[in-house]
Amino acid sequence: MKEILADLDAWRAEGRQVALARVVNVEGSGPRDPGAAMAVSDNGDVIGSVSGGCVEGAVVGEALDILETGERRMVSFGYSDDEAFAVGLTCGGTIHLFIEPLDW
């Protein structure tokens, strides 16, 4: 999250609504370790990353939904998921993300 703090500050100063996605757990081979973070603003701007680019697109969708509903949740991406055929990790692992509004 360190890498995106400066951008987060700027967004907050502008009064943007922001969703924060953090990798909390990785099973098998994953591209980024727990703590990797990306953030999505209410107009769809993105900073940071949580994988090698494999799932970021899907995370944006989840993040925008969470900004709308305000419901924070765990989201997982992995080869074993049904969804993996649509958005999976090419490296074969599973990553678990916690996505929430940055309202704290």
């Binding site: 999250m1 360190k2 909390v24 727990p34 916690f98």
Partner: peptide, 8 residues
């Protein structure tokens, strides 16, 4: 309860 502890 599951708690994610992130060290900076």
């Amino acid at each position: 309860v599951s708690v994610f502890i992130e060290s900076f």
